[in-house]
Design a protein around this nucleic acid. Structure first.
Lengths: 137, 137
DNA sequence: AACACAAACGCAACATGGTTGCGTAAAAAA
DNA sequence: TTTTTTACGCAACCATGTTGCGTTTGTGTT
């Protein structure tokens, strides 16, 4: 877990107050954020465009990844160290809490190996669990 | 596979040209439809509100169910016979084709049994596969 | 067949989430 | 310090889906 400033430097992203705060926000939480939630938590910008563009930039640099969302919003979580600077490499499941509507990455669950025989070429497997998270259970 | 008219009668839905066509459309295909795709294929209405409300009504009667969509659109597929008139009961996987952006129900794949030990209470398991469907492979 | 009621339609207007264009500001590189 | 490039911030836009409401049309009943 590097310092926010080192991360921005490493990924050749300019160091601005908002982006520093954004990285710290992601690092501070085990769950994930939508643009709207970010807007509520960070004061150094009020412009949603700034938020969306920072999220896109971070995603492109493999710093954060999209996770499923209860209401089909775009939601991001921090990437693990397996992601390189240019390549996402995720094989974990996600958990959606139906109480607080948060999404969590579950690193301890391994994805099933599916071999479909009906003519579908499978490239990716996504496993999403729903229920109640530890805080809401 | 009943006639469209019988289905509408069974579910106490009024028989209109559009809803008859809509049922037939779902029955004609192994995949699934968004409101926009329905609007392209059915001529008996031009109003998206009519489409959205019919889809909601069909979903409430457990005639169709929501399936995942590549672009986070609301997408529906026909229910199987296990769904009662008032209760959805699905435990199949879904396949998203990254070429044609269609979603298919995979009835031959059984969902994995997940026992999470980290304090998450799991109520539902969703398995979504991605790749190329038979027509696009 | 006529009536009455509820369900469905169709139009307008709205809500939400996300995107694009463009001029300006401000880091970082030279 | 100058130049270059990235990020910001505002406005305007777009796409998907929803709500309200008056009108129409099935359908079940008299």
């Amino acid at each position: 877990m590097n310092k926010a400033e080192e991360i921005l430097a490493k990924y050749k992203l300019k160091k601005t107050n908002f982006r520093l705060e954004l990285i710290k926000l992601f690092q501070s939480s085990k769950s994930s954020f939508t643009a709207d939630e970010i807007n509520d938590k960070i004061k150094s910008t009020n412009d949603k465009v700034t938020i969306y563009r920072a999220l896109s930039a971070f995603e492109k640099k493999c710093l954060i990844h999209r996770v499923p969302d209860k209401s089909n919003l775009i939601r991001y979580a921090l990437c693990q160290k397996e992601c390189s600077k240019i390549h996402h490499k995720h094989n974990h499941a996600h958990f959606i809490c139906n109480v607080c509507a948060q999404t969590f990455c579950l690193d301890n669950i391994k994805l099933p190996q599916i071999n479909d025989t009906s003519g579908f070429k499978i490239n990716k497997t996504k496993l999403t669990l729903e229920g109640a998270c530890p805080s809401c259970y």
